Simulated scan of single mutants.
Amino acid sequence: MTTKVPLTVKGAEKLRAELEELKTVIRPRIIQAIATAREHGDLKENAEYHAAREQQSFAEGRIKEIEAKLSNAQVIDVTKLDPNGKVVFGATVEIEDIDSGKTVTYQIVGEDEANIKESRISIGSPIARALIGKETGDVVTVKAPSGNVEYEIISVEYI
């Protein structure tokens, strides 16, 4: 039995859009490239053919990967949750480093959606694990490589 993997609505939409693009645009383009390369004759020494086959292999692998992720996903719409101000999966949390006074905002998402450049952190990350279940005003301690860091939760939003 496989366990369901949490995924935000945005994350699921992004995966579905990529899957649609792979199936309706990229796959036909690769099939056409293979057909064109075959017309050039000897396949053993045909670099275009081998490159197209490699692209096909990659695309088909990605299609299978996305389909598996979507079939194992538990899509969670955070706007419909009522967590009573507590930090839960999908919440957007503003925290302040107590020592430096620096504030950062993160959305807690599934592993596949995590992207630090977009301020989206994995539910399995040390910061997210420390924040889950807490609420505005709480102070959490995060074990970081450089030592423990304390953060105060400034705000929690479900957007």
Score class of each variant (00 low, 15 high):
I121F: 09
K14D: 08
T92E: 15
D42E: 13
E18L: 10
Q56Y: 09
K44G: 06
G41A: 14
V5Y: 03
I95W: 01
D99Q: 13
V104Q: 11
S122N: 08
K44Q: 12
Y106I: 06
T79D: 10
E67Y: 04
Q56T: 00
T79K: 15
K10P: 00
E45D: 13
T92V: 11
N46C: 09
L15A: 14
A128M: 10
E20T: 09
Y49W: 11
G124L: 11
Q55P: 00
N72A: 14
L43C: 04
I63V: 14
A17S: 12
G11D: 03
E21G: 11
I98R: 08
S119G: 02
N46Y: 04
L70S: 02
Y106E: 09
N72Y: 03
V88G: 05
L15W: 02
G124I: 01
A37F: 06
G61K: 05
I31Y: 04
M1G: 08
K102V: 12
K117Q: 13
S125V: 05
G101K: 05
K23W: 00
R62Q: 08
P83V: 12
L15V: 05
A73L: 04
H50R: 12
L19S: 01
I123W: 05
H40F: 11
G110V: 06
A73R: 02
K10C: 03
Q107Y: 02
I127G: 00
A17Y: 02
N115F: 06
A114W: 02
K23E: 15
M1P: 00
E65T: 07
E94Q: 14
G90Q: 06
E60L: 14
I116E: 12
K44P: 00
R62C: 06
G41H: 09
G124D: 13
E118H: 06
A91K: 01
L15H: 03
A128N: 08
N46I: 01
P6E: 12
R27A: 11
I116N: 06
T92S: 14
G61C: 04
S122G: 07
V25W: 05
I95L: 13
Q55R: 09
E13L: 14
G101C: 02
H40M: 15
E18K: 13
K80P: 00
N84R: 12
K4D: 09
S119A: 15
I121G: 07
D82G: 10
R120I: 01
D97C: 05
R129A: 10
E118L: 15
N115W: 01
T105P: 00
F89V: 10
E48N: 08
G90D: 07
N84D: 14
T92R: 13
H50S: 11
K80A: 15
H40K: 15
K23S: 03
A114K: 06
R53E: 13
N46R: 05
P28A: 07
V75A: 11
D82L: 12
P83H: 10
A128C: 13
R16K: 15
Q56F: 09
K64Q: 10
E94C: 07
Y49N: 02
L43P: 06
K14L: 12
Q107R: 15
A73V: 04
Y49D: 01
I98D: 04
I121K: 05
E20P: 00
F89T: 07
I95T: 05
E65N: 04
G101T: 07
K80N: 13
E39A: 14
A91C: 10
G11T: 04
